[in-house]
């Protein structure tokens, strides 16, 4: 394989978990919930995938377990934010604490190995051209979610619930049900992200192995403006930055600075997105109208 091909492969591998986290955050964002719980859902899903995959020897069961655990956490998150009106950020951080504490507890209590879970042999994910099916699924999810959000009645209802709850309610949409749906969709997509992270190539689980990818996905979604294609483009920027940073290690750049790149990119990207939004607003909102702006219409000018 050529060097460019290798780099593209590395970039795609780095992008996939971030893309899945970003899409997960996008669904709730469209229903007006800032979802910091993606991180915890991914982490719990990653452990479930490895634990069940090891015990059963089956990839399918591993992925199913990841989905089950992440959906349970999503249900809890949705239940207390949508059902009981809890603050989404605080509840999301609570979910993350529960996931990081719970995975550590399971490692210590069930496997007696707080350092991580490394099965001796673990089945490979089916792959195409060196990329796992989950990576391919993450790419397919972009058009699928675009169609879902913009071309189906359910997607329109979900967006309406997020954009104007009162109007949606007046139109007969159950806002609470739409928000809950968005949280569950987010849990399912986050589960794939966690499964990809642990099952593809690595075949092991480490405590806190998501290391902020859920938050980076959240940043990518915000940077991408909350649309499927924009979010995907942003996730690719992050993945390519990560893969490029890995190359820096060849030039003796300390690994800590290489590892900082995704987090720093997230901050820069969010700032850039806000600057863009402000620049767009500025002419109308801030600059006062001066007399010279209003020219009298000359004869024959198009009105």
């Amino acid at each position: 394989m050529t060097a460019a091909g290798l780099f593209a492969g590395a970039a795609l591998s780095q992008t996939a978990p971030i893309l899945l986290a970003a899409l997960a955050a996008m669904f709730t964002q469209r229903a007006n919930i800032l979802n910091v719980a993606v991180e915890g859902m991914m982490l719990a899903a990653a452990l479930a995938a490895i634990a069940v995959g090891q015990a059963s020897g089956s990839i399918a069961l591993g992925v199913a377990a990841a989905l089950g655990v992440a959906l349970a956490l999503a249900g809890l998150f949705g239940g207390i934010t949508v059902g009981l009106g809890a603050d989404a950020i605080v509840a999301g951080l609570g979910i993350n604490l529960l996931a990081s504490g719970g995975t550590l507890f399971v490692l210590e209590e069930v496997y007696d190995s707080p350092g991580g879970l490394r099965p001796d042999n673990f089945p490979d994910l089916p792959a195409l051209q060196g990329q796992s099916v989950i990576v391919l699924a993450s790419l397919l999810l972009v058009p699928i979610s675009a169609v879902f959000l913009y071309r189906t009645p359910l997607g329109a209802a979900l967006r309406a619930a997020g954009e104007d709850a009162a109007a949606a309610r007046a139109a007969g949409i159950s806002v609470a049900r739409m928000r809950l749906l968005s949280v569950l969709l987010s849990g399912a997509v986050a589960a794939l992200g966690g499964a990809e992270l642990a099952m593809d190539k690595l075949h092991f689980f480490l405590p806190a192995m998501t290391s902020g990818r859920g938050f980076i996905g959240l940043a990518a979604m915000l940077f991408g403006g909350g649309t499927p294609w924009g979010t995907a483009a942003a996730a690719f920027v992050f993945g390519i930055a990560g893969a490029a940073a890995d190359r820096l290690q060849a030039w003796q750049v300390p690994s800590e600075f290489v590892l900082m790149v995704p987090y720093a990119t997230a901050v820069v990207a969010l700032t850039a997105a806000r600057l863009r939004a402000i620049a767009r607003l500025r002419p109308a909102a801030v600059r006062p109208v001066r007399p010279t702006d209003v020219k009298p219409l000359a004869e024959g000018d198009p009105a």
Binding site: L93, G94, I95, L98, G101, G102, F105
Partner: peptide
């Protein structure tokens, strides 16, 4: 790590 689990539960219960 039981305490970490308790912390998560506590945050959720508080909300």
């Amino acid at each position: 790590s039981l305490v970490d689990v308790l912390t998560g539960l506590l945050v959720l219960l508080m909300t």
